[in-house]
Nucleic acid binder design. Structure first.
Length: 274
DNA sequence: CATTTCACCTGGTGGC
DNA sequence: TGCCACCAGGTGAAAT
């Protein structure tokens, strides 16, 4: 489900609702997709307070510590995979199928992780023992033009595949790769290293514009994505190519084409993108 | 090494 | 209605 704009929306929502709240108890289902064993997560989470929650790449990073502390001494890192949701609820709210984590909070609310396909990941890090979490790739909203161009230099793979590589850029997924390539007028199969500097500048600008616009609209709700409060996003209404196979291009009316690239459905306008 | 393919899961949709 | 093929926001391991 979630790419940078969706993860950003969820992280902001969770931050607003749980900051300053202390975790009294943590429960995990037997099938929970865990990077850290359940016992260690439960023990580490209980008694710690949410100091802040933010996004890094597609990861939601919860900074944890003693109540009122200025610096965190632990992190809870949530990756939502394809179908993960992070929801703040009342404790009596019905428990959705595939709920894999429930964190009871001192305020009486719960933070719940729901993930039908279990492609997500939950990780607990005690800082000092482990380094603070860092996304491997550059942030597409902060990267400079020179840095952006350098990411793709000499690479033979398709630009779409390069955009999806989190070690290069962190946060771009299938929707926003397709949408930004459309806005930059670039075919997804073009070799990344063969793009001109002007094209790369256009692509970086398209990414920034599309991602920021999507964040403003609360992300894309393609099937069932919702934010921390259970509210859907609206950016799916702005999609120009993603999941619009056969429909007319919004600029030139040419039917949108679908190919498979890097194992993912890839959508583009054969007329507007060269 | 860089790049590609596939497995990991459940659920929704559309054709027959 | 049922069955089946195919598709879906991601990513890491294995293969090339």
């Amino acid at each position: 489900m979630p790419e940078l704009p969706e993860v950003e929306t969820i992280a902001r929502g969770v931050h607003e609702r749980v900051r300053g709240d202390c975790i009294t108890q943590a429960w995990f289902s037997g099938l929970a997709p865990l990077k850290t064993p359940a016992a260690r997560q439960s023990k580490g989470l209980a008694g710690r307070t949410f100091l802040s929650v933010h996004r890094t790449g597609k990861h939601i990073v919860c900074e944890l510590g003693p109540a009122g502390a200025s610096a965190p001494d632990a992190q809870w890192i949530v990756h939502l995979g394809m179908t993960g949701r992070l929801l703040v609820t009342t404790p009596d709210a019905p428990v959705a199928p595939h709920t894999h984590a429930r964190l009871s909070l001192e305020s009486g609310r719960e933070l719940r992780f729901v993930d039908p396909r279990r492609f997500g990941r939950l990780e607990f890090r005690a800082l000092g023992k482990t380094d603070a979490f860092r996304a491997p790739g550059a942030d597409p909203l902060a990267v400079t033009g020179d840095e952006f161009a350098a990411l793709f230099r000499g690479r033979k793979l398709a630009i779409k595949a390069a955009l999806l590589n989190q070690a290069l850029l962190s946060g771009v997924g299938n929707i926003y790769a397709d949408e930004s390539l459309f806005h930059a007028g670039i075919r997804p199969r073009r070799a990344a290293g063969r793009l001109t500097r002007a094209e790369l500048d256009r692509l970086r600008e398209a990414l920034r514009t599309v991602l920021r616009h999507a964040i403003r609209l609360g992300g894309s709700s393609v099937s069932d994505y919702v934010d921390a409060n259970g509210v859907r996003g609206f950016f799916q209404l702005e999609h120009c190519v993603y999941l619009r196979t056969g429909e007319p291009c919004r600029h030139c009316e040419t039917p949108i084409q679908r190919i498979v690239l890097a194992g993912r459905g890839t959508h583009f306008c054969p007329h507007c993108q060269r």
